[in-house]
Amino acid sequence: MKPFRTVSGIALPLDRVDVDTDQIIPKQFLKRIERTGYGDFLFCDWRNRSDGTPDPTFVLNRAEYQGAPILLAGRNFGCGSSREHAAWALSDFGIRAVVAPSFADIFQSNCFQNGLLPVILADAEVRTLMSRALQTPGHEVTVDLESCRVTDKKGFEASFEVDPFRRECLLKGLDDIDLTLRNVDRIRAYEEARGAAG
């Protein structure tokens, strides 16, 4: 996994609550057997009108926000299906951090597995960033995992909490399976203690 330390760049304001993973990556793209290449399909049904042409009003299609590494969203982002394809699609599109007042549990866990940082800020803090990003398209924000702070050049500053273990894994780009396999003797002992059926 690629390490995450700090990311600066354009903030992409998706001003909606309860965005579910069916919207982030619609089901027709889950039939692929690869981990990569989902970025083109991110928010497919919102990016494209029913005739297949891009909807120029949707924030992902607007020229001023191209190349944004930071997504701003409303509460409960990533609810619904457990599909990790949602994290893959965001990552493949170039998003490195998502800032929202809350995240669905499975989505949040999937982000950490893919070097994508979910940042929880207070409602009012997200609202401030959202307003700035909407009013000044191209507004830049910095997310720093080492200091656990989100800042911008207009004086915005907020700290966030992240599970210390997850933070360490992201900063160092550690592989979860390798970490668990360091405990292989304990796993074996657990299985033996539970008997033959263990």
Partner: peptide, 8 residues
């Protein structure tokens, strides 16, 4: 769980 955890 997500696919990375399935692998795990």
């Amino acid at each position: 769980i997500g696919t990375s955890q399935v692998e795990h």
